[in-house]
Amino acid sequence: MDALMNFGQGIFGGVWPAVWTLIKIVLIVAPLMLGVAYLTLAERKVIGYMQVRIGPNRVGPWGLIQPIADGLKLLLKEIIVPSKSNKGIFLIAPMLAIAPALAAWAVIPFTDTLVLANIDASLLYIMAITSIGVYGVILSGWASNSKYAFLGAMRSAAQMVSYEIAMGFSLICVLMVSNSLNLVDIVNAQDQGKFASWGLGFLSWNWLPLFPMFIVYLISGTAELNRAPFDVAEGESEIVAGFHIEYSGMAFALFFLAEYANMILVAALTSIMFMGGWLSPVGFLPDGIIWLFAKMSFVLLLFLWFRATFPRYRYDQLMRLGWKVFVPICLVWLVIVGVWMMSPLTIWK
C-alpha cells in the first residue's frame, strides 16, 4: 500500500490525493454498475423460477451474458426527444435520477476502515442525497409533455415525500440507540451488549430491539424505490409506464440503472442500520465484508420476492399505509425507545 502511495506521489505529485480519490470512486462505481447489470439478470431468473419458468437462458451459459447484451442494445438505440417536450429538462432528468443514486455511495462503509468518506453526519448525508432522487422522476414527467408521464410523476412525488417521513422516523430510532450519525459508529454500536459477549452477535443487532422500525424501514424503502407492490408511478395497466414512457435508448437505461443502484443502496443501508453491516452473526467467525454482501443479497432477494408475490397497491391504500399506519407506529415506538433507554432496563449504555 505504501509503495503504491509513493509511486502515485512520484507520478502525479501534488494532485495525487485527488487522483487517489478518483481511483477509489471508480473502485466503488464499477462493481456497483456490474452489480446492477447482474441484479437485472437475477431478478428475471428469480421471478422466473418463482413462476415455474426458466428465465433468460439463450445468451451465454445460463443466460449470463444477457445483461451485457441488453446494455449494448440500449446503448445503440436512438434517443427520441418528443417535439413538444422541454428539451433541456428532458435530457437533464435522467442524469438527476442517477447522480444521487451514485453519490450516496460515498459514505457507505464496507468495513470499519473501507469507506470513501468517513464523515461525522453520514446518515444525514444519505438522507439528504437520496431525497434529491425524486427530481429525476418529477422533471422527466413534466418535461415529457405527456399526460401519462405527468400522472406518473405526480403519483411518484406524493409517494416518495410521504414515505420519506416514516423512513426518517425509523432512522431516528436507530441513531438514538447508537448515539451517533456516523454509519461506522452505528455498526460498531451493534457489536455491544449481552448477546454479543455470548458470541450470539446476530441477536444484539438493531433488528431485534427495533423490530417494528426494521419492518417499517424495509417497507418504506421498497416504496421509496417505486418497486412492486408500490410501483403506482409506473403502473403499466393504468398509465402505461409512468414517468419514463417517452424515454428510449440510454436515457431510459439511466432511469433503469438509477432504480437498481438505489435498490442496492437501500439493501446496503438496511444491512448497516439493522443487520449489523460487516459484523459476523456468531462469535467464532471473523467479521468481514463478505457478511455485508451476504446481508445485502438477502435484502435484494426480498425485493425480488415482493415483486413476484404481491399485487400492486391501489393509490389510496398506499397513502393510508404511509400516513395512517406507519407514522403512528413510528411515533409510538420512538417514545417507547426513549423511555426504554432512560429506564434501568436499558440495553444501550
Binding site: 439528504a128 431525497s131 434529491i132 405526480m154 415525500v161 420519506e164
Partner: peptide, 17 residues
C-alpha cells in the same frame, strides 16, 4: 446538509409540484 434535506429534498419538491 440540513438545507439540502429540508429545502431541496422536501420544500422545493412540493413547490415544484
Amino acid at each position: 446538509i440540513a438545507i439540502i434535506l429540508v429545502y431541496v429534498g422536501a420544500v422545493m419538491v412540493l413547490f415544484l409540484f
